[in-house]
């Protein structure tokens, strides 16, 4: 038997069940970043969360996550994979993203800024 990833350590007790189902395959520091994002809107934690989710979805696993890296040209995303990643953010943060918003996000920096903007509009936990 194999798993795609090693069995994860126990999730922080305070991560809600629905988010834990999405994040349990990520390292503990990513789940902790998620908690800081939803409780304090911590920008550094937002970046940690965004970069981990991009890395988890990007087809070219060996590519670097520089700010100017283009999601499609440099990291290998196609429209299906972008839709998959966007849904991950939507499901995790309980937000909705429009098609018009998606097409404006071209680079890693665009995505970091966009997610920070989305999180700022969330009601306080």
């Amino acid at each position: 038997m194999k798993t795609r990833t090693p069995p994860p350590p126990a999730a922080p007790a305070s991560v809600p069940e629905a988010a834990d189902a999405l994040l349990r395959h990520f390292p503990a520091e990513v789940r902790e970043a998620y908690l800081r994002v939803v409780t304090s809107r911590d920008p550094a934690a937002t970046d940690t969360l965004v970069l981990a989710i991009v890395a988890d979805h990007m087809p070219r696993a060996e590519a670097g996550l520089a700010d100017d890296a283009k999601l499609m040209a440099d990291l290998g995303f196609d429209s299906v994979t972008i839709a998959e990643m966007v849904f991950f953010f939507e499901d995790l943060l309980k937000v909705s993203v429009t098609n018009a918003e998606i097409v404006r996000v071209r680079t890693v920096a665009d995505l970091r800024a966009f997610v920070r903007h989305k999180i700022a509009s969330l009601p306080r936990a």
Binding site: V80, A83, E84, V86, F87, E90, D91, S96, V97
Partner: peptide, 14 residues
């Protein structure tokens, strides 16, 4: 069920 829970606002693209 995910789509229903989000009242049609989002869903898994797969």
């Amino acid at each position: 069920a995910q789509i229903y829970a989000a009242r049609g606002e989002r869903g898994n693209p797969m």
